[in-house]
């Protein structure tokens, strides 16, 4: 895609499109930041300013002192890490198969992978809860991570499939010819080349789990993840504390996604430079 030149009609449409999207994403983040750092006055002030009148870390500090926040954060990290590992361990082989082998129903398989995301979690919630209670997974970070793995798996498979497809088959064949078994060739040649992209897929799985709130809320009572915990705790607290909580939730996702944006663009077919 070529960038339209500035000044032309196309340029204007392009520019305003970019502007709308930026506002769409940045405005809520800005407002949350304003509330988190500006405290009560910034939340209720109207018209809003770009920068809070008085900057303070009080609400963030108070928020971090709330009972159970650290435990919830730990649960979140635990669930997200488990999700990351499981999604990759299951997703990467699927991705490799999709990239390297032509088998009957490959296209259908590809479609089905994505269709798993079309199945509403709300319908699954009740049977899952019953099942989890029965097998003893209820109210554990591991139980939550199982559901999150199901959510992240399609993306892990699709991202790794495009990664592996981008590594020429000849490189693997050369490795075989020069003495590698299939597994050795994968470890010595494919993996090093795919590693940055695999890291991106892992981080993406982490973020999916970190952000997920519905399943986490339904499947835990005591051992809540941060999102689920905040949903219950903050619904009764003053607005600026909610903003502080929201801010802390957003930051890791934004940082991670920013770090791996190149690979996500590649996944979505946007040319990256």
């Amino acid at each position: 895609m070529t960038k339209p030149s500035i000044g032309s009609v196309k340029g204007w449409i392009y520019g305003s499109g970019v502007a709308v999207l930026c506002v769409w994403v940045l405005l809520p983040i800005g407002l949350i930041g304003l509330g988190a750092f500006g405290g009560r006055p910034a939340v209720y002030q109207w018209p809003k300013t770009l920068w809070p009148a008085s900057l303070s870390l009080d609400q963030l500090a108070v928020f971090l002192k709330i009972d159970g926040v650290w435990n919830a954060a730990l649960n979140s990290v635990l669930a997200a890490s488990l999700t990351m590992v499981m999604a990759l361990l299951l997703g990467a082989p699927a991705g490799y198969a999709l990239a390297r082998f032509s088998f009957k129903g490959a296209t259908l398989f590809r479609l089905m992978i994505l269709l798993t995301r079309a199945f509403p979690l709300a319908i699954l919630a009740l049977p899952l809860t019953v099942l989890f209670i029965r097998v003893g997974l209820y109210d554990t970070a591991f139980g939550v991570s199982l559901v999150h793995t199901a959510l992240a798996l399609p993306f892990a498979a699709m991202i790794t499939a495009s990664l592996f497809a981008g590594i020429p088959r000849e490189l693997e064949e050369a490795a075989w010819v020069f003495g590698c078994t299939r597994w050795q060739a994968f470890v010595k040649v494919v993996l090093p080349l795919a590693l940055p992209g695999m890291a991106a897929a892992a981080i993406f799985a982490f973020v999916i789990s970190w952000n997920e709130v519905f399943a986490a809320s339904v499947l835990t009572v005591q051992q809540r993840t941060l999102t689920a915990y905040l949903l219950t705790v903050l619904s009764e607290s003053p607005l600026h504390y909610r903003f502080a909580g929201g801010f802390i939730l957003i930051v890791p996702s934004v940082v991670f996604i920013f770090a791996v944006r190149r690979y996500l663009f590649a996944l979505w077919g946007v040319t990256s430079r």
Partner: peptide, 20 residues
């Protein structure tokens, strides 16, 4: 036999030199 056990070497059309 698998390629590794055949005692041969090959030069590929697009070189297939390991970039890493």
């Amino acid at each position: 036999l698998p390629p590794a056990k055949r005692g041969l070497a090959m030069v590929f059309q697009n070189y297939a030199v390991f970039p890493h």
